[in-house]
Design a protein around this nucleic acid. Structure first.
Length: 424
RNA sequence: GGUGGGUUGGCCGAGUAGGUCGAAGGCGCUCGCCUGCUAAGCGAGUAGGGGGGCCUAAACCUCCCUCGAGGGUUCGAAUCCCUCACCCACCGCCA
């Protein structure tokens, strides 16, 4: 959410960034409604001031033992007018609040302006894609041949886009989770958290998943609870409605959670294999920082995510998303893309965003500056550190051998109980 | 699911025969004094949000709102009534 006061005095800038984002939100009605609200507010406040003054006089008169019935009648009439004005105001404020929740975040000035993924900016590459002496297989062939992935039973138990991992496949998934969590908690200083996997509407609204993106989420029928699409939601909301001490910042936390996404609108994309699932595991990184340090922390967070792939020795590149390709709540986003030999291209495995104060304003997460003073909104950052299922795919494809077996990356062997390969 | 207790500022915690209560006291924090240093002590300050003055920002002034949320009674509600949410305890069920 953006500050309405900022919007009011920067309408042209808002129009520009909405266009850059290819977003069709219209600011005019918003500003008009805000004008109306403020006019009505001034009116009701004046009425309330008179009512408060009158009530005080009634109290004083009664204390002196005088009759105040004339004044009381006068105040009763004002009270009715207040009630009517308040009702109209509440109506306007609800509309206004909803509009504000539907405006995307303003892109940072360093973000390239562009339409789609073709306008994204490559920041760096790491590693050299391996030269295969044979035709590298897609992960579903490797996984099924090795008996560690079962797509048919996944679909039978639930739907398509669900997969059953078995034996060393399940073991590898768990090894990756532990490897990533150990890395981020021990080497990068993140606090390990295990949050709820179901959260309230309010919490979903805090990160920007609601109200606009309900169709991407799984909702519980009988309760006000939603399955999290990422641990970003509960982690970022950890201090919702609170005022933190500046000493607590920057606050680093990480969590492994399953993630649930309906993938509405992505029919036909990546239908084979487990690249795009309704349920997948992810280790998430979240930071709460001061406004001054958030961009530096964004770079560090992205490097923390990249470190997973460096240690696994899998090639990747990092790109900066352009304005048209960025998510709703982000001011700036780096995607990390991992090399998939079977596709001969880089595919997204992590997305690291600085949301500045956009989520903080929705959540009401602030901090008290050192030395006192008014509370300020924190900046929130999040990034996959990294998507576990896609990492498993990347391991299988990059470490496959001609005979269908898969070498276990050195960094994972301790987490696999010393196992060094998966045999077909 | 049942019964009972609770939800007040950054935190803890008073506050119901309705009025001068945005709220005692304490802790914390900030500033100052004192002091070899630290601690202790002394003094002062310290809730959040919003509108307007005010064209941008700070400061300041002023008004409004906020004592879990929403509604009601009343000239006036932290205080009385209703609904809901959440927390705690006990019971039932249960991994």
């Amino acid at each position: 959410m953006l500050d309405i006061r900022w919007i009011r005095s920067n309408v042209d800038e808002v129009r520009t960034f909405l266009a850059n984002r290819l977003n069709d939100f219209d600011v005019e009605p918003l500003v008009a409604l805000d004008d109306e609200k403020r006019a009505l507010l001034a009116e009701t406040e004046e009425l309330k001031a008179r009512r408060n003054e009158g009530a005080k006089q009634v109290g004083a008169a009664k204390a002196r033992g005088e009759d105040a019935s004339g004044l009381m009648e006068e105040m009763r009439v004002i009270g009715e007018r207040v009630r009517e004005a308040d009702a109209r105001l509440a109506e306007i404020e609800e509309k206004l609040g909803y509009m504000l929740l539907c405006i995307p975040n303003r892109p940072h000035e360093s973000v390239p302006v562009g339409k789609d993924e073709n306008d994204n900016l490559e920041i760096r590459r790491w590693g050299e894609p391996r030269k295969f002496s044979f035709e590298p297989k897609p992960h579903w062939d490797i996984g099924e041949a090795a008996g560690i992935m079962d797509f048919e039973r996944g679909a039978a138990l639930a739907q398509s886009r669900f997969t059953v991992l078995k034996g060393l496949g399940a073991r590898l998934e768990r090894a990756l989770v532990n490897f990533m969590l150990d890395l981020h908690t021990q080497k990068h200083g993140y606090l390990e958290v295990q949050p709820p996997f179901l959260v309230s509407s309010r919490t979903m609204q805090g990160t920007g998943n609601l109200p606009k993106f309900a169709e991407d989420l799984y909702k519980c029928e009988n309760d006000d609870l939603w399955l999290i699409p990422t641990a970003e939601v509960p982690l970022t909301n950890l201090f919702a409605g609170e005022i933190m001490d500046e000493e607590q910042l920057p606050y680093y936390c990480t969590a492994y959670t399953p993630c649930f996404r309906r993938e509405a609108g992505s029919h036909g994309r990546d239908v084979r294999g487990m690249l795009r699932q309704h349920q997948f595991d992810k280790v998430e990184l979240v930071k709460l920082t001061t406004p001054e340090q958030s961009y530096e922390e964004h770079e560090k967070l992205t490097e923390n995510a990249e470190e997973v792939l460096r240690l696994l020795e899998i090639p990747f590149r990092t790109i900066c998303l352009c304005t048209g390709d960025m998510g709703f709540g982000a001011s700036k986003t780096y995607d990390i893309e991992v090399w998939l030999p079977s596709q001969g291209k880089y595919r997204e495995i992590s997305s690291c965003s600085n949301c500045e104060d956009f989520q903080a304003r929705r959540m009401g997460t602030r901090y008290r500056p050192k030395g006192g003073g008014k509370p300020r909104l924190v900046h929130t950052l999040n990034g996959s550190g990294i998507a576990v299922g896609r990492t498993l795919i990347a391991v299988l494809e990059n470490y496959q051998r001609e005979d269908g077996s898969v070498e276990i990356p050195g960094a994972l062997i301790p987490y696999m109980g010393g196992i060094t390969e998966i045999r077909a």
